[in-house]
Computed example of a mutant assay.
Amino acid sequence: MLTENNLTWKMRLRELFIDYICILIYLIILFGITMGIYLVVLKGIPEFNELQSQLVALLTSVIPIVLIFSFWDYSKGSIGKRKAGLELYYANKTFGASLVRNIIKFLPWQLGHIGTIRGIYTNFDTVAIIFTICSMVLAIVLLVMGLVRRDKRHLGDLIAGTQTQVR
């Protein structure tokens, strides 16, 4: 791993922007398929309780995105990394390391889901607010670590033994 990484914040933000466009495309397609099933097959949008809503969000958005990005990072890198001219280096290249990295990377998103969904069902009680704040704090910590550390590694990189570098 490099101790002085020449990865610039513009490269990192370009990577993140492109990757989040990919996520947005996935979510739009998911929404279209889901609404098609609800309206055509089920003849309406079903009512969900809080637990069901949490599971739907986890199983249809978070887990698939974590798995897709883990696969991309393990193979040739995410679309954002490739377009930004970046590559993910591993201390010990395993799919498990890629999976750990992406679980941590997308954890703020899941915590945000938990807080928002709980808030909708509880009129944003204390627990919902705590999850939402934890989501934002962790997202900021990960972003700041990846931008300002000399080695440009965020928490997921440190735990998984990975580092994004210029190709």
Rank of each mutant, 00 (worst) to 15 (best):
M136S: 06
T162N: 11
E4I: 09
L39M: 15
S135E: 03
Q54G: 02
Q110D: 10
F71P: 00
T60V: 08
Q163A: 06
F124I: 04
A57R: 06
L158C: 03
I37V: 15
K83F: 15
A57C: 09
I104Y: 02
R150T: 15
V66K: 04
T3I: 10
D19Y: 12
K81T: 12
T126A: 15
I45M: 04
V100F: 02
E15K: 14
V100E: 02
L30K: 02
D151I: 01
V137W: 06
I45H: 06
T3S: 14
C134S: 04
L59E: 08
K83A: 15
K105T: 10
M145W: 09
M1I: 10
L99D: 05
T164I: 12
I28Y: 09
V41A: 12
Y89I: 13
T122K: 00
L27R: 10
C22W: 05
N92I: 06
I23K: 13
T164V: 15
A97H: 10
I130K: 07
K105H: 13
I159F: 10
F17T: 15
L7I: 10
G85K: 13
N6T: 11
T60M: 03
W9R: 12
L2P: 07
T8W: 02
G115P: 01
V66I: 12
S53P: 11
G36M: 04
L55Y: 02
F106M: 05
T34P: 07
L158A: 07
I28Q: 08
D151C: 02
F48D: 08
N92D: 14
I120F: 10
T94D: 11
L13V: 14
V127P: 06
V148C: 10
I79K: 01
V40I: 15
T8L: 04
I104E: 01
D157K: 00
I140C: 14
L58I: 09
T3V: 08
R167A: 06
F71E: 06
L39C: 10
V56T: 01
Y74I: 08
P64F: 02
H154V: 02
L13Y: 14
S135F: 02
G161N: 00
K81N: 13
G85I: 11
T3Y: 10
P46F: 07
V141R: 13
V41W: 13
G146D: 09
L59D: 00
L24W: 14
I25M: 08
N6H: 12
P64V: 02
G32V: 07
L39P: 03
I65C: 01
Y38C: 13
C134T: 01
L24N: 13
D19N: 11
A97P: 01
R149K: 15
I18R: 09
